[in-house]
Design a protein around this nucleic acid. Sequence first.
DNA 1: TCCCCTTTGGTACTGAGTACCATAAGGGAC
DNA 2: GTCCCTTATGGTACTCAGTACCAAAGGGGA
Lengths: 193, 193
Amino acid sequence: MSRPSLRERKQQRARDEIVEAAYALFAERGYAAVTVADIAERAEVGRTTFFRYFGDKQEVVFANEQDWLDDIGRRHRELRPDRPPSLAEALSLLRATTEAVCEQVTRDPRRYAERERLIAGNPELGDRAARKQRRLAESLSEILREQGASAETAALAPRVALACYIAGREVAGADPAALRPNVAAAFDALGIR
Amino acid sequence: MSRPSLRERKQQRARDEIVEAAYALFAERGYAAVTVADIAERAEVGRTTFFRYFGDKQEVVFANEQDWLDDIGRRHRELRPDRPPSLAEALSLLRATTEAVCEQVTRDPRRYAERERLIAGNPELGDRAARKQRRLAESLSEILREQGASAETAALAPRVALACYIAGREVAGADPAALRPNVAAAFDALGIR
DNA sequence: TCCCCTTTGGTACTGAGTACCATAAGGGAC
DNA sequence: GTCCCTTATGGTACTCAGTACCAAAGGGGA
């Protein structure tokens, strides 16, 4: 990979500053009381530029999740089964991937806790978080189909894995360290090893 | 129950007219191209009144789903197990409830198909639909806790049932009649009878 | 150094959602 | 029927998210 140009470095910098400004303001006043104009001002960019980097106000909360999704998809694709996976086999593969997701999202525990706090307090952010999860499930569904799984297995397995993730997340509460063990326990309870 | 007063009848009528106007306009122009002012005008009410009946533009698409949620919750509460349910037992109870949900939402097949069409074309409506599903899962989770289920079971079982519902819905596509059988097949595949 | 092309940010607009208020219209007491 | 009280209504005016458009600034390559 080539080193980023000056242009690209400035863009990355602006992007990061917008995210930092947004999280700082959200922490101070709460999500609803912060306007996009406020964020842009503190980040020292124009309001228009904010919308060029982030499609809407909600997106800035999930700033780098698109990278995660790509990463997770790539990782899962590398778990190549040697034959079309049955439902049980697909669920086993997905357990590994789901636990990797847990590691990924809690890599920055401080930011994780803050994001959970924001989501808990703003239904619209909960909606957006759920959309991200759905997208991931759909992406994994497609990969399963590529690997030869039946339509039923491809539709069901990622949803069940997501159920385990959400249930584990709920039991874990806001504690980043508790996420993965609780998700693992949910898979165990369903007999998925 | 006492018969509704004139006031209540007019309100119900206004509510119904708003929903009818909204669905008619959405069918004509699509969700995004219809403004709340348009809906209010066709329903012959003030714009303010629209927001008094429906918190936001999205809500009108899911007009009577709150009633469904209450109904489903009540129905599930009536399935009283004689002892605290294990995970497997909770899943069995939830299978019955989930199949009842299938019947409920497809009771008006025309409206069901139209709603699915709108949701498929507008991500924000998908978000809202998912929020409703989450709410239902949380409500069922609470009922399970009341019935003595463990925190883990209460968190996991409704999410798994929801996974079966969504997977079945995906396989069924827009065909109302195919919903319940496909959801049932998903439960079968997981060994939940 | 010069030119091109992308990014930037400013202006102006639409439409969702909210606050407030004057008015109309049930519903009950008599 | 009449009067009064309470509640629903809808109009006005506002904030803010999100979009379209455009002129200017500043990399990047020649």
